[in-house]
């Protein structure tokens, strides 16, 4: 119960501070639109390659990919707030008080999730304005969007936890740059986010099967399809949830390691 209250209080702090830097908020919304419109234009004709799976347009194909890219790239920086708190004495103050360690991790996850869900809705709206259509009935569309947003939340939780653990163990912003260059960017290309993996080399398709980012892309795309295979959607969401729980536990343990080395 304490942990839930603390998560709420700390999430409110993060949202309050995010809102105090409007430039940040605007950038958060502009960036996914750049991905969507740039990739959407650049690779528009790949859908004409024989064997490309989708029946729809490339914009419809890439929209869930861009939603997940935005969520993952944002979450990879979640540890920044820990680094800032550690640079000041704020983290030490939390750690010498009864503040729940789990809540410290969970609050950065929920803050990132709120931002990522907002970004996802903007991307979906822009794609819709540009002519993309998802689901076959209004009911199915709603259900599909909700499942896509669940995938966004789980993916965000997973990468926020990874970023937090790295921040706690290294205390360095540079390490977070490493995560985004060496982990998230390759994961993005080793997935079906912008390209149907059936047209990629076989090894890419093999890697993608074990890539949590691809789980989120597949779940989101399938949920928005004209006739979704819900087994695929729930299977991928389950895997993502499991990975997020494990990584969340690792991040919470990182507090102990930090105490031992401090």
């Amino acid at each position: 119960m304490t942990a839930v209250v603390h998560t709420g209080l700390l999430t409110a702090r993060a949202l309050r501070q995010g809102a105090r830097i409007p430039v940040f908020m605007v950038m958060n919304l502009v960036q996914p639109m750049i991905w969507l419109l740039l990739f959407g234009q650049l690779f528009r004709s790949v859908v004409e390659i024989p064997g490309f799976s989708t029946g729809g347009t490339y914009l419809e194909f890439i929209t869930p990919g861009v939603v997940m890219m935005t969520a993952m790239f944002g979450a990879a920086w979640a540890g920044s707030s820990f680094v800032q708190d550690m640079d000041r004495g704020v983290m030490d103050r939390f750690l010498t008080s009864p503040t729940s360690r789990g809540a410290l991790v969970a609050s950065t996850m929920s803050y990132q999730a709120v931002v990522a869900v907002g970004q996802a809705l903007v991307v979906l709206a822009v794609a819709w304005l540009r002519g993309a259509r998802f689901g076959s009935t209004p009911g199915e569309t709603t259900l599909g969007v909700l499942a896509l947003l669940l995938a966004v939340v789980l993916l965000t939780a997973l990468f926020s936890a990874l970023s937090n653990a790295t921040a706690l163990l290294t205390g360095q912003q540079e390490a977070l740059i490493g995560i985004s260059q060496l982990i998230t960017l390759p994961l993005m290309f080793l997935s079906s986010a912008v390209m149907d993996t059936r047209l990629s080399p076989a090894w890419v398709a093999d890697v993608a099967r074990y890539n949590p980012f691809d789980w989120a892309v597949v779940a989101g795309r399938e949920a928005l399809a004209a006739s979704p295979d819900w087994g695929v959607v729930w299977g991928r969401l389950g895997l993502l949830a499991l990975a997020a729980v494990v990584m969340g536990w690792v991040a919470t343990q990182a507090f102990r390691t930090r105490q031992r080395s401090a």
Partner: peptide, 22 residues
């Protein structure tokens, strides 16, 4: 701590209220 323990992007009051609630 030796280093500042407050959050620079919160007000003085917000810092104290959050600390009290935690």
């Amino acid at each position: 701590a030796q280093k500042p323990v407050t959050d620079p992007m919160d007000t003085g009051r917000e810092n104290l209220v959050l600390a009290g609630r935690l």
